[in-house]
Computed example of a mutant assay.
Amino acid sequence: MKIGSGWYLRGDLGLAVYQGGRGHWRTLAGAERKWYDDSFGIGGVFGVGAGYYFNEHFRFRT
């Protein structure tokens, strides 16, 4: 939505899908440690901002 000469408002809408991780390491004593996370999640992403349109090659947004 244009506000005035070059200024505009913007909105972002999205979906984030993430999964847990895994890792393994050795302690200073030489014992092996393992970590495994089998979680899975989905979340929404929403943001708003404003920007200034200079020309078709350059614009500034926040």
Rank of each mutant, 00 (worst) to 15 (best):
1 M>F: 13
2 K>A: 11
2 K>D: 14
2 K>N: 12
3 I>W: 02
3 I>L: 06
4 G>Q: 13
4 G>F: 12
5 S>Q: 12
6 G>M: 06
6 G>T: 06
7 W>H: 13
7 W>A: 09
7 W>C: 07
8 Y>G: 03
8 Y>C: 05
8 Y>I: 04
8 Y>M: 08
8 Y>N: 06
9 L>P: 06
9 L>G: 06
11 G>H: 15
11 G>R: 13
11 G>T: 15
12 D>V: 13
13 L>C: 14
14 G>S: 11
14 G>C: 09
17 V>W: 02
17 V>K: 04
18 Y>C: 07
18 Y>L: 07
19 Q>A: 03
20 G>F: 06
21 G>F: 06
22 R>N: 03
22 R>Y: 02
22 R>P: 00
23 G>N: 08
23 G>E: 06
24 H>L: 02
24 H>K: 08
25 W>G: 01
26 R>W: 12
27 T>V: 08
27 T>W: 11
27 T>G: 14
27 T>Q: 13
27 T>D: 15
28 L>W: 09
28 L>A: 11
29 A>C: 12
29 A>G: 14
29 A>F: 09
30 G>M: 07
30 G>E: 07
30 G>T: 09
31 A>Y: 14
31 A>W: 13
31 A>C: 10
32 E>A: 12
33 R>G: 13
34 K>A: 04
34 K>W: 07
35 W>P: 01
35 W>N: 09
35 W>V: 07
36 Y>R: 05
36 Y>V: 01
36 Y>E: 04
37 D>K: 08
37 D>Q: 12
38 D>M: 02
39 S>P: 13
40 F>S: 03
42 I>W: 01
42 I>Q: 03
44 G>H: 01
46 F>K: 00
46 F>E: 00
47 G>E: 01
48 V>E: 00
48 V>T: 01
49 G>Y: 02
49 G>A: 02
50 A>S: 05
50 A>Q: 04
50 A>E: 03
52 Y>S: 05
53 Y>Q: 07
53 Y>M: 02
53 Y>V: 04
54 F>L: 09
54 F>C: 09
55 N>K: 14
55 N>F: 10
55 N>I: 07
55 N>S: 14
55 N>G: 12
56 E>P: 10
57 H>I: 10
58 F>E: 06
58 F>N: 12
59 R>H: 15
59 R>M: 15
59 R>Q: 15
60 F>H: 09
62 T>V: 14
